[in-house]
Design a binder for these strands. Structure first.
Lengths: 210, 210
DNA sequence: ATAGTTATGTTAATTATATCACTATTAACT
DNA sequence: AGTTAATAGTGATATAATTAACATAACTAT
């Protein structure tokens, strides 16, 4: 249980590598190299090797990497060798988009419950998952042993939902509300702020000013 | 036109600061400090001051920052003192979620055109914007002088759409397709990969292994 | 066998980013 | 007016991440 510090950027790249390797594998290619991967995803070969080196030796010198093997190794590293139960809170446009997003299920993220406060939505289904009222979050999430919560509700209620999810025992939260959430340190939290992404773009478009 | 290199992390934080300042301003608070801001958004006071120092001096020593002033300065820095015309390509669940996302308009991002390939969708409206066919991207985007394109289409066609948007003269692209896009260096590109975000979480949940 | 080639794994150097500690400035109060 | 408290701005330091360089291992061909 050595706590070697691994950069988050490395984790993000590993995720991208694994997706790239899935594509390469589908083309029937058996062997690849740090150079190939680097070219495929737009980083340097040294970066690819360094990222992998945090976790072990997966290649053969002079030869390269076996595509299937390396892919499996990375998926294992990312914790994707098992399925994850996900609770989605908020069945608005964004919630609907997330629940129908193929990429989640492909990677082993199964949305096992959906919650909303709108009485008109409660009882209806998205796919084969029934929309439940907010006050059932704790009971249902605990019962399903759900580890991950996705917050897709308005900012005004996001903290309240986060508290409920944590009380229900989730270990990680993906938050789409543009607000700073307060969570205990043992809870993994990531924020996806859609407007921020556009703002980085507009800054860069005008960045010759600085 | 000095090209002082500014960390992307700084830009992201500035965006968060400005949103925080909007909240603080709404509460009627006139003056704030690096310490207040730091506490409000979860970073260190030194970080706040360092981030601002890239762009000038906005505060008064011993006193702090005027909330409205600082907010305006940051918005100006981020390029948000003017509106931006945005073209949205893909009117699926995600496209619908993005087009109805309040946060965009609030920050000056106006979706001026929406495109999709589905004949059933073409001609219908989202809000007051009509969905147009893909082959009108170039003409309409150029006419509107649209600077930003959002790609919310399947991975298989994302590169093709990117090419069209670039040909139409957009300067920046926000890509939601989980694929590595190839764009010329003068085009600003950001990728939002929803699955990657969950994978960073699952890695961290199991990270005691390393 | 052996030399040559290729590509990994790893150490070292460089670059980038964040933190810290100090200085300067302002306002308030006595 | 002088003193104290508060807080921005900044240069120095520490930490982190990326890039480059290199030594090692495996394969190929003669």
């Amino acid at each position: 249980m050595k706590t070697l510090k691994i950069p988050e950027a490395t984790i993000i790249r590993l995720s991208v590598y694994s997706r790239h390797l899935t594509d390469v594998d589908r083309k029937g290619i058996i062997t690849t190299s740090s150079g190939d991967i680097a070219e495929g995803v737009g980083v340097s070969p040294a970066q690819v090797r360094k990222d992998l080196a945090y976790f072990g030796e997966f290649g053969t010198r002079g030869v390269g990497y076996n595509v299937k093997d390396l892919r499996q190794h990375i998926l294992r590293i990312l914790g994707l060798s098992v399925d994850w139960s996900v609770a989605l809170v908020g069945a608005g446009h964004l919630g609907l988009a997330l629940s129908s997003y193929k990429g989640f299920r492909e990677r082993g993220f199964i949305i096992t419950s959906i919650f909303d406060s709108d009485p008109d939505k409660i009882g209806t289904k998205i796919g084969d998952v029934e929309i439940l009222p907010i006050d059932q979050i704790e009971e249902v999430t605990r019962q399903n042993q759900t580890q991950i919560g996705i917050i897709a509700v308005p900012s005004s209620v996001a903290q309240e939902i986060a508290d409920k999810l944590i009380k229900a025992g989730v270990q990680a939260i993906l938050n789409f509300a543009p607000v700073v959430l307060n969570v205990p340190p043992e809870i993994e939290l990531r924020n996806v702020d859609l407007a921020v992404n556009l703002e980085v773009l507009t800054f860069n478009v005008g960045a010759q000013r600085f």
